[in-house]
Design a protein around this nucleic acid. Structure first.
Length: 778
DNA sequence: GCGAGCAGCGTACCT
DNA sequence: ACAGGTACGCTGCTCGCG
């Protein structure tokens, strides 16, 4: 039969892998015998001693690129630890590749990639052989999906021992339903059962939720247990496997993909594809799907439920909308996860919970196997600490010329670090530390040498990623079908994410392939290339007003045209290594650079007006979540006015109005909320800033606050410190805020940053009421 | 005893 | 729980002044 692997797990039988294999709409459970093994760099009588060990099936000598090693095959999957203890006790050598779960080992050995089509011979439930179906190589399976969300009857902190589930909504492509009970009719038990029946009947491949890993599944599991219902949703009849630990929580359903859209949003945020003030369902839904949804305060839910009638209907609508939102948000992350799965080769569920560094690592592990190399061991905690103490020098940033500029062109190096890795053949194996070595080398500006002709895993893998991406980009151009185009764009994005993460990975203290010399060489070449480029531009007569790591901003003089610049770019690219490319990014009629507080030019902070009228703003308060909306909105308007008009008159007027409104308390409280993430747990802070103080107040009221919680607070009136006046938004009475704080610490500093560059004084903004001398600015 | 000035903490940004 | 470079608000200390 023809299909793809959706999931895998260790079978309840020893030495067997269970595979969820999808053929058309049906998911089959297949099994294959598989013996787990690991490698040993042996010492002493390792071979003899281990051959006699009762848990060892066989010991073979294998040739790996790094030399001879022993391959230790185990009688049972679970005996790895026992055999390792024995090795340590008898000092028989250094074990390698002993830490992978058995199913990963299986995927690597069989060279299998989930969500990729294979032809497979099946005898009963046994797997014969997987043969990749080449005509379907580019086909990504269309997974059937559904989403759910639960509501509780709870006061403040939910307690799964006593607070029942009152409502569960379900949503899929063609269907939606809300299951619930009331004091008059039905029970929690029936509600759960009806929902489970629905899931079973619909039998979708993906089950989605929002924060379902940490909330819905653990809660549902508890309530199901109390009601004595089995949560046996696995395609082999197994239960939902919930593992609720502080950090690496999981909720797995064998044969299905549990997709937590919240994790997806965090992932998009981590790769810089998304940035929001808060990652709540409401905010994310509006941003990604452009739709608003009703929000009911958590404390109100039981009230709506008990009241019945119209209120109950409203609660049902809200509950369903949560599922719809989770469903639609998932639509935006699932295709990317699918492409990453096909690229990295881990089971899809694992991919949805991995960081990019882990993905890079697994890609290297798999490629390592293909090159017959042993995977480097994980660093010890001590090594990690030592690595962390010794950071690597990073990119170069040129201080900008402040002020309002016209005729700007931005150029940047396309994938600077990956292309340096490729051009200079940078990897731990090509790194040459032998000073007398007579081979040909690339020598980095910081004095590291890399063999020109040697083979190294890292540059080979990066090259493959970049080449593949170029191919995919070409395909995108040739493809008319919009669906197929979208798929390819996700594939290109997946390749880009992994290629760009490779440098970070080499400098990541926990990485198996950590290499300080490689990472340092990469950044040293990076600094050299951008500095050289700036220098050459200046020699050519261009005015370079700013640069950061891999890009620079050029201000065209009156006698210079865009054509002149593009001609120069061509020349530059002729001199660069073939993999590297300095690209024309865009033309900007106006751009603004400002000073920092101390008076010198501020880096990483600018606003550009593109030739199509769009604003591109970096670093300013308005792109930061820890400023109040009133300050951000006003700053944005000011930047817009200044860039569009080239003078500050209208902007000054605008700020005056906002100041007036604040004074008169005409500003809505929601425009004053400052959001700050708790990076630590509440007790771990040495200095108590406003967000920590607000968090403490929240905790007192029974709210749960942990590392990762985003605190929203408003500064209220009073003469205590700002922190003491930080009131969490949940506890704010309308319009209880300190106007002066928002004027002097938010709106004025945010806007003065910009207006100062144009000669405006602070007093000009606060003169509201009096006629300000607008004539001055025109 | 008081305010100015500053270091250090903490967070979020840019590439 | 990918890297380093950067800005900046707030707290809480030191210091000089009287």
């Amino acid at each position: 039969m023809k299909g793809y692997i959706l999931d895998l797990k260790k079978s309840e039988n020893e030495n067997e892998v269970k595979i969820a294999f999808v053929e058309d709409k049906e998911t089959h459970v297949l099994r294959e015998d598989f013996k787990k093994y690991f490698y040993l760099l042996p010492q002493g009588e390792a071979r003899e001693k281990l051959s006699q060990h009762e848990e060892v099936e066989k010991v073979e000598e294998v040739d790996k690129k790094q030399g001879k090693a022993l391959k230790i095959t185990l009688k049972n999957w679970d005996s790895t630890q026992k055999v390792r203890d024995y090795i340590e006790e008898k000092e028989l050598g250094e074990p390698r590749e002993h830490q992978y779960p058995g199913v990963y080992r299986y995927l690597i050995d069989r060279n299998l990639y989930p969500l990729t089509y294979y032809q497979v011979e099946v005898k009963g439930e046994e797997v014969g052989k997987f043969i990749e179906v080449s005509e379907l190589r580019n086909e990504v399976p269309a997974l059937s999906r559904c989403a759910f969300d639960i509501e509780l009857d709870t006061q403040g902190k939910p307690d799964s021992e006593v607070d029942p589930i009152i409502m569960i909504s379900y949503k899929d492509e063609e269907d939606e339903e809300v299951f619930y009970w009331t004091k008059e009719k039905g029970t929690e038990l029936e509600t759960i059962e009806n929902f489970l029946e629905k899931l079973e009947k619909k039998n979708k491949q993906v089950i989605e939720g929002y924060n379902s890993t940490n909330f819905d599944w653990p809660y549902l599991q508890q309530r199901a247990h109390i009601n004595q219902v089995k949560l046996d949703l696995g395609i082999d009849g197994s239960s939902v496997k919930v593992n609720k630990r502080g950090f690496g929580s999981t909720a797995k359903i064998f044969g299905k993909l549990h997709l937590d859209a919240y994790k997806g949003v965090e992932f998009l945020t981590s790769i810089g594809a998304l940035r929001l003030p808060k990652n709540t369902l409401e905010v994310v839904y509006e941003e990604l799907c452009g739709k608003e949804k009703t929000d009911i305060d958590h404390l109100e839910i039981p009230i709506y439920w008990k009241e019945g009638g119209e209120k109950l209907e409203k609660l049902k609508k809200y509950n369903l909308e949560d599922s719809v939102a989770a469903y639609e948000i998932s639509e935006q992350v699932l295709p990317l996860y699918q492409e990453l799965t096909r690229l990295i080769g881990l089971p899809p569920y694992e991919i949805t919970r991995q960081s990019t560094s882990n993905m890079v690592e697994w890609l290297l592990v798999r490629e390592s196997f293909k090159f017959n190399r042993l995977v480097p061991r994980r660093p010890t905690n001590q090594e990690i600490r030592a690595r962390r103490m010794n950071p690597i020098k990073g990119g170069y940033v040129k201080a900008p010329e402040t002020g309002l500029h016209e005729d700007l062109v931005v150029c940047d190096f396309k994938s600077l670090y990956p292309t340096i890795v490729i051009s200079k053949n940078i990897g731990p194996q090509t790194l040459c530390e032998d000073e007398g070595c007579k081979e040909e080398h690339h020598e980095s500006p910081n004095g590291q040498r890399f063999h020109k002709n040697g083979e190294s895993l890292v540059p080979q893998v990066v090259e493959k990623l970049v080449e593949n991406r170029d191919k995919v980009k070409k395909e995108i151009k040739e493809t008319k079908d919009p669906e197929k185009k979208k798929r390819l764009e996700y594939r290109s994005q997946a390749l880009k994410i992994i290629a760009n993460s490779t440098f970070g990975y080499l400098g990541y203290p926990r990485a198996r392939w950590y290499s300080r010399p490689c990472a340092e060489a990469i950044t040293s070449w990076g600094r050299q290339y951008i500095k050289e480029t700036i220098k050459k531009a200046e020699e050519e007569g261009f005015n370079v007003i700013y640069g950061d790591t891999d890009g620079c901003f050029i201000k065209l003089k009156d006698n210079q045209s865009l054509q002149d610049l593009k001609k120069w770019l061509k020349e530059i690219n002729r001199e660069l290594p073939s993999a590297m490319n300095l690209e024309y990014e865009g033309y900007y009629p106006r751009g603004l650079f400002v000073s920092k507080k101390g008076g010198t030019a501020a880096k990483k902070k600018y606003a550009l007006l593109r030739d199509d009228g769009k604003l591109e703003i970096k670093g300013f308060a308005l792109v930061r979540r820890d400023w109040a909306p009133i300050a951000k909105k006003t700053q944005k308007e000011v930047i817009k006015k200044v860039l569009e008009e080239g003078k500050p008159a209208k902007a000054v007027e605008l700020v005056e109005n906002v100041v007036k409104k604040l004074r008169n308390k005409e500003v809505d409280t929601k425009d004053l909320v400052i959001h700050t993430t708790m990076k630590k747990n509440i007790d771990n802070y040495n200095s108590i800033g406003p967000h920590v103080k607000a968090a403490k107040k929240l905790e007192k009221e029974g709210y749960k606050v942990t590392a990762g919680t985003v605190i929203g607070y408003v500064i209220k009136e009073g003469n205590q410190s700002i922190s003491q006046r930080a009131q969490p938004i949940q506890l704010v009475k309308n319009k209880d805020y300190d106007s002066n704080y928002y004027i002097d610490n938010q709106v004025i500093p945010a806007t003065m940053r910009i207006l100062k560059e144009l000669g405006v004084k602070e007093s000009d903004l606060k003169n509201s009421g009096k006629q300000s001398e607008l004539g001055k600015w025109t």
